[in-house]
Nucleic acid binder design. Structure first.
Lengths: 340, 340
DNA sequence: TCGAATATTTGAATCGTTTCAACAGAATAG
DNA sequence: CTATTCTGTTGAAACGATTCAAATATTCGA
């Protein structure tokens, strides 16, 4: 390890006895340079252990070959799946995908977004935690292409890929009603989260037409297993006449937590006493202590589609028109909500 | 949107009527500039919507304020948790954490590593998929600091943080033996994965002292729920005298998949007919159809510790000595392996 | 009020690429 | 044999921030 500073393209040029431009051409336009020259340069590169300095390259290019993805919760397998789909697609297109985890915290989200802006990323996929319009129009005005994932945008703002959460909520609750349930508990994070609000709206639509039914909302700050467990205990503590006979959880993590509370801590029978349905249909839903009914979302597909839309906007800025790709959620019935 | 090119520090300087150096100072050494100047400059920055170009900054600095993390499988909640721990710690230290998902594919791993090298990242946390020594010494020679996570390194190579997988394997299988089991099936990904090999080694140590016990290895390419299910079906298809009376899965995802196969597809009773224990103790283990015994690893702590070690090496290159931080895994007994 | 000491500000040089007009040599055509 | 392409190669000029010695302001003590 001769020197403590990395070799530059200059060093390579010197060693190979060519001009820097030639080295650059070997790297970026191999067809322009003669075979023997390429050979000389390659040997010098190998000998020095030269590695292209991406900062310099980007500086010249004006933007990076990287796109960002900010998700609400990287611990949630749904987002893990979505990230995988996006990553695969991005790599296929020769882009790197950088992942940031906002933890549903707008400060962290903002921090990541400005980091991505400073990096002059080509674009960013965003699963926004709070109000969208102002944040998105802010970053877009500054030139960062954006696609919303797992959340629909007003059509003229930017592209978005997600599922019809209102339909999902309606489907879930209609199913519970079909099973003869009347008193529905809706468990979600804060309603400030659009996804939660939409699923709740769908749920309300479902009961709207059916007399004698009601819905009670339980909010939690987080949407993970732990939060679910605590809401589950809250529900257990209710007076008998207050107790719901069905629970619709805004995601599977919450549902699993609720299951834990109901089945272990108390002796509630699921689905006999209380039916439960979750959302996302993560891999574990099927293996839950009572196999969990859920609303399936095509997570990986959402990620991949989002990357495609982003790429279209990046590559064809003029002809590009914003699109909303809305996948339909699918009801998956398992034991946790099947009465017979 | 006047021009289509982003404003630079020059534009800010011009608008504010100061020199570029001053703008830079406002950004980086506020204490050196007079309050009113700061005020002028800030106003110009706001008016132009100026955003620092990180590529230029990095180019000058020679390295970025970013560290990378390459994990085997971002869909696995264990890694999600680890990433969260690392991310929190990194942000606390003012660094951004970039996540790459290798999917246990050495090509992808290499791609991410060279991307990180090109970005001149300060360092990288690596959960390596294949042979370590050559890969790690390669990137380290080129100057990229490395810490291995979820995997121990030879002490002189680099720092590493993980758990004692041999002990974990031994603990898991000893527990099964204590429950009176004799014929153990070990289910893991390929043994080329060090974690799997170690857990298996521990398992073998455990049966070594006990006469009349045996272990049979089932390998799978992936280590997710789907792979577990297929192995589960493989086990179901065995002749009765071939069937194990206990299964030790190298992670909880596999265990959950196996559970699905055994409990749904067939009518095997768990734990009466076959006991199961997994590894990682992810959140879902407790809520599995039969609550899953597991070996708990402090995932978030591993991530946080790794960031600390990496930072120490980056900040004190001379005084730094490589360390191996090995956490002890913890046996968590639940219904899936409890005989009485 | 003056000079010394201190506080601010300046702007050219630098980081490592890529780009591109200019150039040299070789091949081809007339 | 000269004009005309073609092929490769060259090297200086960006890109946009940071740095730092030098220049300029300001403050303070006598």
């Amino acid at each position: 390890m001769s020197s403590n500073t990395r070799p530059s393209i200059q060093d390579v040029a010197r060693l190979a006895g060519v001009a820097v431009g030639t080295v650059s051409n070997v790297l970026n336009n191999p067809e322009r340079v003669r075979a023997e020259t390429t050979e000389k340069v390659s040997r010098a590169i190998a000998q020095l252990g030269f590695i292209r300095n991406d900062a310099a390259r980007q500086l010249k290019a004006g933007k990076s070959q990287t796109i960002g993805l900010v998700v609400l919760d990287s611990t949630n397998p749904f987002f893990g799946e979505l990230a995988r789909g996006a990553e695969d697609q991005a790599m296929k297109e020769g882009l790197a995908l950088i992942l940031g985890n906002s933890g549903n915290d707008e400060q962290r989200e903002a921090k990541y977004l400005s980091l991505f802006e400073e990096q002059r990323m080509s674009g960013v996929l965003l699963s926004p935690s709070g109000m969208t319009a102002s944040v998105v129009s802010g970053i877009r005005n500054r030139g960062l292409k954006t696609v919303l994932v797992d959340r629909m945008a007003e059509i003229d703002l930017c592209c978005s890929v997600g599922v019809d959460d209102v339909a999902g909520g309606r489907t879930a609750v209609s199913h519970l009603l079909n099973q003869g349930r009347k008193k529905i508990a809706f468990v979600g994070g804060t309603v400030a989260t659009k996804q939660v609000a939409d699923r709740l709206a769908g749920a309300k639509e479902a009961i709207a037409g059916v007399p004698g039914t009601q819905i009670k909302v339980f909010a939690s700050s987080d949407m993970n297993v732990l939060a679910g467990r605590s809401i589950g205990e809250q529900i257990l503590a209710l007076a008998p006449e207050e107790k719901p006979d069905a629970i619709f959880a805004a995601n599977d993590l919450l549902a699993v937590g609720i299951l834990q509370a109901l089945v272990f801590r108390a002796e509630v029978r699921v689905p006999e006493d209380i039916a439960i349905i979750g959302y996302d249909d993560i891999d574990f839903a099927e293996a839950a202590i009572v196999p969990l009914s859920s609303i399936r979302q095509p997570a990986a597909t959402i990620g991949a589609t989002a990357v495609e839309l982003l790429l279209d906007e990046i590559e064809n800025p003029e002809t590009h028109v914003h699109r909303r790709v809305m996948y339909q959620p699918e009801l998956v019935i398992r034991a946790s909500s099947k009465t017979n």
